[in-house]
Amino acid sequence: MFDLDGTLVDTAPDLLRCLNSALVQHGFAEASPIAVKPFISFGSRAMIKASLTTPVDKHTEEALLATMLDCYENHIADHSVFFAGIEDTLDKIETQGLKWGVVTNKRQRFTNPLMAALKLTDRAACIVSGDTTAFEKPHPEPMLAACRQAGVEPRHCVYVGDASHDIAAGKNANMKTLAARYGYLKPGDLPETWGADAVIESPLQITDWIGAHLCR
Rank of each mutant, 00 (worst) to 15 (best):
I48E: 05
K49M: 12
A50W: 06
T54V: 11
P55T: 12
P55S: 08
D57M: 07
T60K: 14
E61C: 12
E61H: 13
E62S: 10
L64K: 12
L64M: 11
A66N: 12
T67C: 14
T67H: 15
M68N: 09
L69N: 15
L69V: 13
L69F: 04
C71K: 03
E73M: 06
E73P: 00
I76G: 07
I76W: 13
A77I: 02
D78P: 07
S80M: 12
G85H: 09
G85I: 06
G85D: 11
I86E: 04
I86H: 01
I86T: 06
T89K: 00
T89D: 00
L90K: 01
I93Y: 02
I93M: 00
E94I: 09
T95A: 14
Q96T: 02
G97T: 10
L98S: 02
K99Y: 01
W100S: 06
V103Y: 01
N105W: 09
K106H: 03
Q108C: 03
Q108S: 14
R109H: 04
R109L: 11
R109W: 06
F110H: 14
F110W: 10
F110M: 03
F110Y: 14
T111V: 09
P113E: 05
M115W: 02
L118V: 06
L118W: 07
K119R: 07
L120M: 15
T121L: 07
D122S: 10
D122W: 00
D122F: 00
D122I: 00
R123W: 02
A124T: 13
C126T: 13
I127M: 13
I127S: 05
G130W: 02
G130L: 06
G130R: 08
D131Q: 10
D131G: 04
T133L: 09
T133V: 14
